[in-house]
Nucleic acid binder design. Sequence first.
DNA 1: ATTAAACATTGTTGTAAATCAACTTTTTTT
DNA 2: AAAAAAAGTTGATTTACAACAATGTTTAAT
Lengths: 229, 229
Amino acid sequence: MKLTKKNTCSLCTDPCEIQSALLKTGRSIDEAKIFHAHFRKHDVICKQGKEVSHALFLVKGSAKLYVEGLNNRNIILYLLKPPAYIGLLSFFETPIYAYSVTALEDSEVCFIELDIVKKLYIESHDLLLCLNKAFGKSVANIMNKIISLNQKQIRGRIAENLIYLSDLNQSHKFYLNLTRKEFGEMAAISEENTVRLLSELARENIIGIKGREIEVLDMPLLKKISDVG
Amino acid sequence: MKLTKKNTCSLCTDPCEIQSALLKTGRSIDEAKIFHAHFRKHDVICKQGKEVSHALFLVKGSAKLYVEGLNNRNIILYLLKPPAYIGLLSFFETPIYAYSVTALEDSEVCFIELDIVKKLYIESHDLLLCLNKAFGKSVANIMNKIISLNQKQIRGRIAENLIYLSDLNQSHKFYLNLTRKEFGEMAAISEENTVRLLSELARENIIGIKGREIEVLDMPLLKKISDVG
DNA sequence: ATTAAACATTGTTGTAAATCAACTTTTTTT
DNA sequence: AAAAAAAGTTGATTTACAACAATGTTTAAT
């Protein structure tokens, strides 16, 4: 991680609500001791079990949010694309992170001192509601994930995941910046079965694969496979 | 559900932080339109997919919090004993419940209008921090559950669950106010396997069972089984 | 008190998916 | 450019667990 002291918030193309809350409460950006950090691919942005010290906001790049399980087996809960609060689920007074986040490509993250955020969301009604809203949405997603992981079988989970990625990229054709192993970790499937199932779906012309370039060819069928389980 | 208009907050033995926040901000309990409801065993307290209209606080009894999955298969995330915020994970600006809660025994629940709570947690620093803290704790629990359900096998999950219940009841010996099926739903195990495994653990003298009366006889071993997976 | 319904138990079977193993291809490092 | 490491692929084997079946037991309803 490479720190940048220079405050780039004023140049930010995708300013977070924290910034507008700052200005609204008549504070300067300097006062909030905001700084930016550059993370390279594979760098850990925040680590399960470590103390939460800052609110993190993904400005550029992308990242995976995952829980570290037994014998190095992880489960990726969702991916993050800017603008996104990284530490969201853990920054409401939880002392330690309940999950980890790692950069999938070179990324930029904005760090805001937690104390400032706490003060802010007491003063700023809007910020509070906004954060809580995002928070609740994450929880709903996770609930859905619990069901999916436990009650769908791998074909359904793979299909669901492909739909998720297609939505995230807002296109039926997208570049997968995940390894097959990581793709599997999104659906709690072994690497081998992930490859197998992807090839199978390709053979059936439901999707097209060329390396990490994926195209959903038959979305209705994919949705059906996902829904059936 | 049987409503009680009479405001019993002043008699409450286990008052919630909402009440103290009310008083601190100079409001009367009447103003908050608080009412109590009595739920009988098996009554649904809040229902997945329905709109969130009140903050719910469990005052008496106990309940199970679960996500409703595919073809009537549920997963119980945790049990609630007073004092506990029931709707916690869903009342931060999420319009609908992401889960359901059902009474395990005759229970009393306090209803507080959501609008009031929102106003309150803007005014009351303490309430906000307190709710968020509880919230974060729930999230951490759920993360743990995801790992456990996916990466431990049934013996480990049963053991973990027995430890959880033992902790919850603060005793190695406790009455299970769940059916075997529900016990299984806590660990995503079929009813049959739940019975089988419980009997097995009893045969090995790790636990003692007499109907729904359960006693953990060898906690260290049970912990080991849970940790191994 | 009698019947019905829900609950609990045990053995057996089928199968989804992890694991193992061997191999190829791609990417990164020096 | 060569070597090493990481990523991707495929088939064979094993296994954990759900589903089914059959039967006993307790609880609730009339």
